[in-house]
């Protein structure tokens, strides 16, 4: 299955403030912390931290698809309106490994959420 490509229209930044008040149907906020993945403030996936490095549990992972996350994002599609594809704001700690984010983005893509903004948390704003 590798390499797998995800098309991203990237708006990038370090700890940029999120656009408060933006209509929920236009944006999905995914946060990757040291031990969990949350969507719009709701914890959806628990990460395996036993090795000291955050990983997605094998039980949650099917190829690059994080099944609990996919189910949740898929459910959000019914809440969107206007035919516009919501933009996923992907917020993660600087040390988060790319393989975790790759799985998150791949899963979002499977849920037809293919546009991302990237935010690094825990880094000082320049």
């Amino acid at each position: 299955m590798r390499p797998m490509f995800l098309i991203l229209w990237a708006n990038l930044g370090f700890a940029d403030p999120l656009e408060d008040g933006k209509d929920a149907v236009d944006a999905v906020h995914v946060v990757v912390t040291a031990d969990a993945i949350a969507v719009d403030g709701k914890k959806v996936v628990t990460l395996d931290t036993s090795s000291g490095i955050s990983r997605i549990k094998e039980t949650d992972l099917k190829a690059h698809l994080i099944e609990p996350l996919f189910d949740h994002l898929n459910g959000l599609r019914g809440e969107t309106s206007g035919g516009q594809t919501p933009v996923v704001t992907l917020e993660a700690l600087p040390e988060t490994r790319f393989h975790v984010l790759r799985a998150v983005m791949s899963t979002a893509g499977q849920a037809e959420l293919g546009a991302f903004k990237f935010v690094v948390t825990g880094m000082p704003v320049e």
Binding site: A10, T96, F98
Partner: peptide
């Protein structure tokens, strides 16, 4: 094309 073990901050800074 980031390596899987690469840290997120490096990917984002590269994009920047």
């Amino acid at each position: 094309v980031p390596h899987g073990d690469l840290e997120y901050v490096v990917v984002v800074e590269s994009m920047n």
